[in-house]
Amino acid sequence: MSATANLAASAAAVSGTPGFLSPTGVEILFLLVGLLTLGAAITAVTTRQLVHAALWLVVALGGIAVEYLLLSAEFIAWVQVLIYVGAVVVLLLFGLMLTRAPIGRSPDADSGNRPVALAVAVTAAAVLVTVVVDAFRTTWIDLEDGAPQGTTDVTGRILFQHWVLPFEALSVLLLAALVGAIVLSRRENGRNGTGGDGDGDGGTGSGTRAAGGGER
């Protein structure tokens, strides 16, 4: 991030817009929160403790919500907190629980694909950062002037004036997802009476399987 800042600073020195070396308070705050978010995200994808990963994800998503606030997108920030931090992460934790993810450090959290992943991610980051910085180093967002951008009032107005049809379509999609999730996770009741045991079985079987897999 510091390398990026340097890069940005050198770029700003050329342009005539407010430079990177004289940041406003909002910018400083944004940067700090951004660093926190990024750190939490990196920890979330690298930690060996699965539940911790979910918790670090909460931090990262919360950080993004703060960034939304800093970008004056007030409503979206609250939606972010509600849906992601409130619902999605809880859902993920339930998922971890139901798949009997091991509590504590699990040595096999990362697959053998890790070096490739690292290389791809770093290269992608380098390419994208270069391109983005090159393109937007002089662009300035004017947050103070003009009408408020993302208050609940504004967002509600545009949502239900201009975007009402997609909004309704989305509700149908949510319904379909709801039904799909129920169908997928429903137990096979008609096939065998021991469906309830089957799940528990699967769990114990998973343990033995892991041992057997290790042997093999």
């Binding site: 697959s111 694909n113 490739v116 992943a117 290389a119 791809v120 290269t123 992608a124 390419v127 270069t130 391109v131």
Partner: peptide, 19 residues
Amino acid sequence: QTYLGLLLAGSLVLAVAAA
């Protein structure tokens, strides 16, 4: 994951070339 990794690597090469 291997497939996806290779796919993205290829896309990256193309993106770099395009850039």
